[in-house]
Design a protein around this nucleic acid. Structure first.
Lengths: 139, 139
DNA sequence: TATAAACCTTCCCATCATGGCAAGGTCAAG
DNA sequence: CTTGACCTTGCCATGATGGGAAGGTTTATA
């Protein structure tokens, strides 16, 4: 099948399929006489795997590892689990950072009357006249 | 003062100061006879404001609004608070998405023995043989 | 004063994953 | 044989940031 069908069947755009090929995430595909990329059902399967992993927020680098492990039928599941747990740790770190930001902004917003008067602790906090406002809440 | 001192005093790199100028977040600075950008203390103040807002995760677009409100001494604090709360809502949405991803990956990892055997529900989940594994957990 | 160090300028490139567009070749159906 | 759908490569753009090069300026020092 051509790239369009592979894209449709996998949920990965044709553009991204070419990109994955270019960057080595997937091997170069066979070509027809006229130069069209040709895909088999297993390729679509692989692409779907990649898309799912991306949907779960795995980085390209990690997906490369996962693909290798997926295709190695003898690897210990321990290795796969390690990558997954590592990913969880990264997500947790990202979450913690966002939570800290949200709390800081929420804190500032809570100090602001939000009425018709111009006085605003939010802007004061940002402008640095009261630096403690931020340093306490944001790492 | 030159751009280097403004950078040091504000915590914004010289590179980014030029970028902010180029993209209109800050006005074009005055120049010395030889073409060097010249900054006053108020400019450093503004840059610090920008850096703090960025540290809190505000987008450039929002920072532009906040700067405008900061410089308008008569604006109602209501407007500033609205932007801040909007930002909080966006952060909450981002957090929710990451949490959902983390939970999905955690769920998959929990199904995997993580031992020396090759069987691995994580890879099975990604490969799509058991699509329900993901569709349930990830929006 | 001459020279070197430190600083400034603009411009280009790279990131990461993705989309868009354009010019041109190919294929299948009418 | 024409038309339309599809494919190819290649370039540009995103957003915020850093790196580096080539070349001009300022300052400090020998």
């Amino acid at each position: 099948m051509n790239i369009g069908n592979a894209a449709e069947g996998s949920g990965v755009s044709a553009k991204m399929i070419r990109y994955y090929e270019e960057t080595g995430l997937i091997p170069q595909s066979r070509r027809s006489d006229s130069g069209y990329r040709k895909y088999a059902q297993t390729d679509v399967h692989t692409l779907r795997f990649i898309r799912r992993a991306r949907d779960l927020g795995f980085t390209t680098e990690r997906i490369k590892e996962l693909l290798g492990l997926w295709q190695d039928r003898t690897r210990p599941s321990r290795k796969v689990k390690a990558i997954a747990l590592n990913h969880v740790a990264e997500l947790d770190a990202d979450i913690a950072k966002l939570v800290s930001l949200r709390d800081a902004v929420t804190h500032l917003a809570g100090l602001c009357h939000g009425d018709e008067h111009p006085d605003c602790p939010i802007l004061d906090g940002l402008s640095g006249d009261t630096p403690a406002l931020l340093s306490r809440t944001v790492a």
